[in-house]
Design a protein around this nucleic acid. Structure first.
Lengths: 73, 73
DNA sequence: TACTAGTCGGGTAATTAGGGAC
DNA sequence: GTTGTCCTAATTACCCGACTAG
């Protein structure tokens, strides 16, 4: 079994689905340097799941926090 | 773990997990000469861990962490 | 010898990159 | 200033049967 100290990566389509935007938009974010990207030798991009999720959480504004629903922070 | 001093070899599946691609894609990289490969007597491929890691680091671009992440602007 | 998981091949869909304009 | 859609070319993903690794 391979060691699991690696970072989980996401495809542009998955990131686009998380933000509910077009994959092209995610590509623009990567081009603009707003999100870190890992390129395959073929030129396709992969994104770090932790980075995407933290960004998603960072840009999320909750209405109210009742109890321990906040487990990531 | 295994022998030290020797170079660690990775299977196509492990390299595929690092790049979040299909093992078949890694095979294609080897066929196209984008990555060095070592063939077993049976025809299966093995890849050098150092080469894969350096390539992964080479194709990784971090975000420019500006201070204005605080949503002030 | 038999067994499980992985990796050959090829072939065909699906995704992505890049440019450019609105 | 940002996002979505158009196009073409390239890359990648999933399908199969057969073989290898251990």
């Amino acid at each position: 079994m391979p060691q699991n100290g690696q970072e989980q990566l996401l495809t542009p389509g998955e990131v686009a689905a998380m933000f509910r935007v077009d994959p092209k938009t995610v590509t623009r974010w990567a081009t603009a340097g707003r999100i870190g990207s890992i390129r395959t030798p073929g030129g396709h991009r992969r994104f770090r799941e932790s980075e995407v999720r933290s960004m998603l959480a960072e840009l999320t504004s909750e209405v109210n926090v009742s109890d321990d629903l906040t487990r990531g922070r």
